[in-house]
Design a protein around this nucleic acid. Structure first.
Length: 221
DNA sequence: GCGACAG
DNA sequence: ATCTTGTCGC
């Protein structure tokens, strides 16, 4: 698919904040998906050479049967450090490289990390969604910000993630007996719909099939 | 000022 | 994220 760069990636933290605040204004947390969803994609990152090389992987699956349709991988030098709240500036450059390589255009993308469950409501899922103008969901394995009540043990149980008396996402149990996932809207999707799709992409394991497959690609060279 | 802190 | 063996449980 074709990607159009909207800003430089050679930035200082100060400049990154300015970009986050500006692009946050373009984030849409209402459902604007093209349904029925035909292709769901998962993107994940890996690092090589002591972290100096970033490796992005993408897996496009059919929906709702979740069969792999296309995969891709891309490498590029790592140019931004990991700083909580600025993950997108470290990972998106390589992710755009892989998306540029694939033929199929995903109708929905599940990202590793937060959506609006972010200090400035602009996590990596929002950033990627706005840049490629495709619905995205933030699916994180751990908490960045926010508080929540305890979660029942059953699959499908969820609790709102609250930050500054605002609901920014949900803590979702995708499988009995495992740590929950942190789900939040990235772009062009509501929280309720995001939870629904995450569950439908997680039929067996803790993580969505999309990210599990992208994960293998990003890890196993 | 003191912790917390996606991957 | 990544470095790493064995071990517990289905």
């Amino acid at each position: 698919m074709k990607i159009n760069q909207r800003h430089s990636w050679a930035l200082t933290v100060e400049e990154a904040i300015t970009i986050q605040e500006k692009l946050q204004g373009e984030v849409i947390t209402e459902d604007q998906l093209k349904e029925p969803i035909q292709y769901v994609a998962g993107v994940d990152m890996g690092f090589e050479e002591d972290g100096t090389i970033s490796r992005a992987a993408v897996a496009v699956l059919s929906f709702p049967d979740l069969q792999v349709q296309e995969t891709g991988i891309a490498r590029r030098p790592t140019t931004f450090p990991y700083i909580p709240g600025f993950l997108s500036f470290r990972e998106i450059p390589a992710i755009l490289d892989v998306l540029e390589k694939i033929t199929l255009t995903p109708d929905l993308i599940l990202c590793d990390g937060q959506g609006i469950a972010h200090p400035r409501r602009f996590g990596i899922a929002c950033h990627l969604g706005v840049l490629v103008d495709i619905p995205t969901i933030g699916v994180a394995k751990s908490l960045l910000i926010g508080k929540h009540e305890n979660l029942p043990e059953e699959r499908g149980a969820w609790q709102p993630l609250i930050h500054k008396s605002e609901t920014i996402g949900a803590v979702l149990r995708t499988r009995v007996g495992v740590k929950p996932l942190y789900v939040s809207p990235g772009h062009r999707i509501s929280l309720a719909t995001a939870i629904d799709y995450v569950l439908r992409c997680t039929p067996k394991y803790r993580l969505p099939e999309t990210t599990r497959i992208a994960d293998k690609l990003a890890s196993s060279k």
